[in-house]
Computed example of a mutant assay.
Amino acid sequence: MTQLTTIVISNVKAADETDLCISIQNMRLLRILSIKVTNEEETLQMDALSSPPPNLQKLLLTRKLEKVPQWFCSLQSLTYLYLHWSRLEEDLLPHIAALPHLGRLKLTNAYVGKQLRFGTGFLKLTVLWICNFPQLDEIIIEKEVMPNLKSLWIDSCMELKIVPMGIEYLQNLQQLDLTSASRELKNRIRNVDILKVQHIPKRYIWK
């Protein structure tokens, strides 16, 4: 078990938390971890993991998380994080902003709040997906945050009617994709806020 570098676990139940976390903690060479609960009614419990594998590079968690795992800030080798249908009520971003190697972040219905604020960090992030946030109506990007972001994909965030505030700070952004966007957001990208995105070479607005 301790020699595994990749593991995919499905059909997890909340009652499995302790045994699951002990097993993961003992996999010191683990680099890729994917966990999915048995159904959408189950909650993925991961707080019993006190010390994640030090070389973990890719982490995929599917279905509801009760709260942001306290060990997220310890993922010093992580390059890719995907949270699918986590529906967190707690803001995830402050817990992962300082991760030194996080290059790709994919969030699908990962947070139920109305605002995503990238207030600090994400220095190595190059690719960001924000998908299926049914209540999201504001994205704020502070200056000097995500300085190396190359690709931003916003998909199925129908309450988002304004261009992300601070998108003009992302001077290295090469591609912006909008999929299933609100009519208001599409119009602003094409007209009112065209100056804010004119530095982005590739801008795609999909149906």
Score class of each variant (00 low, 15 high):
Leu20Asn: 03
Glu142Gln: 10
Asn132Met: 10
Asn132Gln: 07
Met27Asn: 07
Tyr80Ser: 09
Leu195Trp: 15
Ser156Ile: 08
Cys157Met: 00
Gln135Glu: 11
Glu66Thr: 07
Ile7Asp: 12
Ile96Leu: 04
Leu195Met: 15
Leu20Tyr: 08
Asn132Val: 09
Met1Gln: 14
Ile189Lys: 02
Leu65Val: 01
Tyr204Gln: 14
Met165Phe: 14
Ser156Arg: 14
Phe118Asp: 00
Leu44Met: 10
Lys106Cys: 06
Lys124Asp: 10
His101Trp: 05
Ala15Glu: 13
Trp206His: 10
Glu168Ser: 09
Ile35Pro: 00
Ile205Thr: 09
Leu49Gln: 06
Gln45Tyr: 12
Thr62His: 12
His199Asn: 06
Lys58Glu: 10
Asp193Gly: 06
Thr120Glu: 12
Gly119Val: 06
Leu56Trp: 03
Met1Asn: 14
Ile32Leu: 11
Ala181Tyr: 00
Leu152Cys: 02
Pro147Met: 12
Asp47Ala: 05
Leu78Cys: 04
Ile162Glu: 14
Glu17Arg: 10
Ala98Pro: 00
Glu159Gly: 12
Cys157Pro: 04
Val112Leu: 08
Gly121Trp: 08
Asp177Phe: 08
Ser34His: 14
Pro164Tyr: 04
Leu93Met: 01
Asn11Gly: 13
Glu40Thr: 13
Met27Arg: 03
Asp16Tyr: 09
Gln174Val: 04
Pro134Gly: 08
Trp85Ala: 15
Leu123Phe: 06
Asp47Pro: 03
Gln25Asp: 07
Phe118Arg: 02
Ser10Ile: 08
Thr120His: 11
Lys196Cys: 09
Thr18Tyr: 11
Asn39Gln: 09
Leu56Ser: 03
Thr62Ala: 13
Val192Met: 11
